[in-house]
Simulated assay, not measured.
Amino acid sequence: MADHERSSGSARLVTVVTWAVLLCGLWLWGRQVTGVAGDVPQTAAGDLAAIGRPPEAELPSAVRPLKDALPQRVDIPGLGVQAPVIARGLDARGAVEPPSFAQAGAVGWYAAGTTPGADGAALMVGHVDTRTRPAVFYRLSTMRPGQTVRVLRDDGGVAEFTVDDVQVQSRDRFDAARAYGQHRAGRAELRLITCGGTFDRAGGTYTANVIVSAYLTGTGL
């Protein structure tokens, strides 16, 4: 994928992030609706609530971004996640289209944007629960800086990312640039996004988005 194509894809996403605040309502069913047990990991949602980095945490240096290659699987060892990746676009409302509920164990990658491991911020989304059970990003809000996310690519390589930030952004004050934009120029970055906060019975949805940010710190075959 050419650099200008990736850039235009990211720009299109940012232009439609007005719809991002609707993601939880469009994708996910609340616990009271789904019947999923009430112990879904949560964090308090503020205007921009950071779960935070321990003062003693020392994170590794970033490595040079890779060439483009399509993602095939996401592994998150700390969560026990090994999930296939499905390329997704934007739905009729302008939101990133997640996998179907029948594919709630898969992760959706915004295919018009950056490929994971390449220069820029790659975006991946997933469900937190379904009508009957927890889904792929059920425990995403429990991640902490320093944890690892690995993306297996169709060139046979592995892009290894280190989490450096975990945030909960309320739907009514969603910061699109922080959520989707590249935090540091020249880095390969990754965003993992699902719903969080608390369940709003009146609105029938969660009140926030959980956003895990990571950057490329290793590669392998």
Results as ranks from 00 to 15, higher is better:
P77I: 11
G78W: 05
G78C: 10
L79P: 11
L79V: 12
G80F: 14
V81E: 09
V81Y: 08
Q82H: 14
A83P: 02
A83Y: 06
P84G: 07
V85K: 05
V85S: 06
I86W: 07
I86P: 01
A87W: 08
A87T: 07
A87R: 11
R88L: 05
G89I: 13
G89H: 09
D91N: 15
R93P: 06
R93H: 14
R93A: 15
R93G: 14
A95V: 09
A95H: 08
P98W: 12
F101C: 08
A102I: 02
G105Y: 12
A106P: 03
V107M: 12
G108W: 03
W109P: 02
W109S: 09
Y110M: 09
A111L: 10
G113H: 13
T114S: 13
T114R: 14
A118L: 02
G120M: 03
A121H: 12
A122L: 04
M124W: 07
V125T: 10
G126R: 06
V128Y: 04
R131N: 11
R131Q: 11
R131V: 10
T132C: 06
T132F: 13
R133T: 15
P134E: 03
P134K: 15
P134Y: 14
A135K: 09
A135M: 11
Y138F: 15
R139P: 00
L140R: 10
S141W: 04
T142K: 14
M143C: 09
M143V: 12
R144L: 08
R144V: 14
P145E: 04
G146W: 11
G146R: 11
G146K: 13
Q147Y: 06
Q147A: 03
T148Y: 00
T148R: 15
R150D: 10
L152P: 00
R153E: 00
G156R: 06
G156D: 01
A159S: 01
F161S: 09
F161T: 12
T162K: 06
V163L: 11
V163A: 02
V166H: 07
V166T: 14
Q167T: 02
Q167G: 02
Q167R: 13
V168E: 09
V168F: 05
Q169Y: 06
S170E: 10
R171V: 04
D175Q: 07
A176C: 01
A176Q: 04
A177T: 02
A179S: 15
Y180V: 02
Q182K: 09
H183L: 13
R184V: 04
A185Q: 12
G186P: 05
L190D: 07
L190K: 07
R191D: 08
I193S: 13
I193C: 15
C195W: 05
F199A: 12
R201C: 02
A202F: 12
G203W: 00
G204L: 15
T205E: 04
T205A: 01
T207D: 03
N209M: 06
V212W: 08
V212Q: 11
S213P: 04
S213E: 13
A214W: 09
A214P: 07
Y215P: 01
Y215A: 03
T217D: 03
G218F: 00
T219I: 06
T219K: 05
T219H: 02
